[in-house]
Design a protein around this nucleic acid. Structure first.
Lengths: 130, 130
DNA sequence: CTTTCTGCAAATCTTTTGCAGCTCT
DNA sequence: AGAGCTGCAAAAGATTTGCAGAAAG
């Protein structure tokens, strides 16, 4: 990314406002409110640039394609997808751990995903295949 | 999955032999050596059944679509994709951690991915964009 | 002005589905 | 026979790319 455009700004705004990672279609939907007529290709091109520049992080979750979030090293809500007993997922930054690794392997970065149920979903569980 | 077929057997054999998660096309390539003429649709259908039955696990990694591995709770090599400085990825089973989680959130399962460089790749680094 | 974006449409690629025929029990 | 699978081809989704015109610096 070399230039700041209204499209790239709208994308960052959308993700920042959501306070959670968004899927590409969600980003388009939100950003298009700010920049009518915006296309999906622009979303993908900008996500790629912004990720390359360390401004966004791409998260891969089972059942979803790619979610994109602001790049931070603290707790980040990852998903609120309507899956039966897995309503929320969190990624947490931890210290490096070299146990169990093969000799000579050096850890450069890591990612931890915890699957579980939040308070609200415990009270209102979704039907098995909703 | 209700029946064991030569196709499903070939898929399990391929993954077991590889000793690492495989991408769908890799599974087809390997399984087709055992069952000539096998189709991609059969690979996907079997992966789905085997995952449902807890015999396989699907892993999501940046830059790749889905890799499938034997389901274990111990160390599993996840990827040897030719990325510049990230030659190996490992997933490790850990104990539950509830720190930093929102009140009321219960962890059900988790996944940890460590990115780094193995001994061999330190000695023979790949060019930046190979 | 010049270079870098954008939108649109077409192209790719991955995964799923419909169907008729085959297979295991 | 009968349920469950398979291969093939078409369909459905997601992401990328080519290109002419628009926009940022």
């Amino acid at each position: 990314m070399e230039r700041i455009t209204k499209q790239s700004t709208a994308i960052l705004n959308a993700i920042q406002a959501a306070q959670r990672p968004l899927l590409a279609p969600e980003i388009l939907e939100a950003a298009a409110l700010e920049v009518p007529g915006m296309g999906m290709a622009t979303v993908y091109r900008n996500i790629k640039s912004l990720v390359d520049n360390g401004m966004l992080t791409t998260v891969y979750l089972p059942g979803e394609i790619r979610a994109t979030s602001l790049h931070t090293t603290t707790i980040t809500t990852i998903s609120t997808a309507p899956v039966a007993t897995k309503c929320l997922t969190y990624t947490i930054a931890l210290g490096t751990c070299n146990s169990w690794l093969p000799k000579g392997f050096t850890v450069e970065s890591h990612e931890i995903t915890l699957y579980g149920v939040c308070e609200t979903c415990k009270l209102n569980p979704l039907p098995p295949s909703a």
